[in-house]
């Protein structure tokens, strides 16, 4: 770990040149292990994936070309996966934001049992994604699942409601699971944002005779904007890379109905062992999420300086 020289630094050489050198090097020694780990396990893999994205074939017959990238344009499966990912992200984000904001507004007033409510709402979000998959397989199962069972006992005809097994409903079903799991995240961040808004602007609005709608659009929303942006950016980044729950619930099926980019990359790499093509697709996914993470980091920086 750390050189013992530093651990046992004694005061006698505080004025010496050696001490100065040591004092200067000290912060770098503290940072070095972190940088080494990230270089080896984040940056090197990134360079590695760029390298293999230009390779086709394996072993002795490796060829260098752009063919993995040109293949992307003619691959209708990739196009569908990209489309599913975008639909998934946009629809889930919209519902999570609207419901989360609604709940946050309901709770951002004197409320008995607010902490209990907040704690209970945490549960879906903290669950291991694999467990979320198990939970919703039990709910969605057409034969003995809780949803269809309950509907049936109320007299509904559930023959067509096969949820994740139906090509028409599967994407909507996995999106619903995402909304169930991650609306609490929006709720928590937005509630924290709402509670950080001081009382004065509201009082001023009341003195000016603003009604609730004017207050909401001209006071609450503008002041909540930083929290909204952070919540939306973080969620978008996660939505674009979604893998776990869909893998457990449908494995991308039925057919190709719920295949997202992450699942398709997984399939290409670990089912067909086509690592070069998987790498090229990873590149596209990375570019897509990078734009959003860049926006997020810029926003963070502004928060930092504010």
């Amino acid at each position: 770990m750390l050189p013992s020289v530093i651990m046992n630094s004694d005061k006698s050489d505080h004025s010496g040149k050696f001490f100065n050198w040591r004092e200067k090097a000290f912060p770098y020694l503290l940072i070095a292990p972190a940088i080494a780990v990230l270089l080896a396990l984040s940056i090197y893999p990134l360079l590695y994936i760029i390298k293999i994205s230009f390779q086709t074939g394996s072993g002795e017959s490796i060829k260098w070309s752009l063919s993995n990238f040109t293949r992307l344009f003619s691959d209708s499966f990739f196009r569908d996966a990209l489309l599913h990912t975008l639909i998934y992200a946009i629809v889930a984000l919209t519902f999570e934001f609207l419901i989360g904001l609604g709940l946050a507004l309901l709770v951002d007033r004197p409320l008995r049992g607010r902490n209990v409510f907040r704690a209970v709402l945490l549960i879906p979000m903290m669950l291991p994604p694999v467990v979320v998959g198990v939970v919703w397989r039990l709910m969605f199962n057409p034969n003995f699942g809780a949803i269809n069972g309950t509907l049936k006992s109320m007299g509904a005809n559930t023959d067509a409601l096969t949820w994740t097994a139906s090509p028409a409903l599967a994407l909507a079903s996995v999106i619903a699971v995402d909304v169930w799991q991650w609306t609490p995240f929006m709720f928590l961040i937005l509630l924290a944002g709402l509670q950080a808004i001081p009382q004065e602007p509201y009082e001023a609005a009341m003195v000016d005779g603003a009604n609730w709608r004017q207050t909401f659009f001209h006071v609450t929303l503008p002041l909540l904007k930083p929290a909204i942006l952070i919540a939306l950016l973080l969620r978008t980044m996660d939505l674009l890379r979604v893998f776990d729950q869909i893998f457990i619930l449908t494995e991308g099926g039925p057919g190709f109905a719920t295949e997202t980019v992450s699942l398709y990359i997984y399939r290409a790499a670990f089912r067909f062992f086509d690592f070069g093509y998987a790498a090229a697709m990873s590149f596209v996914l990375l570019a897509l999420t990078n734009a959003i993470s860049y926006a997020y980091i810029r926003l963070l920086q502004r928060q930092e300086t504010a």
Binding site: A34, I35, L38, L41, S42, I43, Y44, P45, L46, Y48, I49, I52, M237, L240, R241, F243, S262, I265, Y266, A269, F270, F275, A278, A279, S282, L285, L286, T289, N290, S293, Y296, I297, L300, Q301
Partner: peptide, 21 residues
Amino acid sequence: LWILSTRMFPPIVTAVPLFLM
């Protein structure tokens, strides 16, 4: 910021090279 940016890679993007490594 550089350290933070490494957190932003989608896991599937690092999964493929990490598997090979």
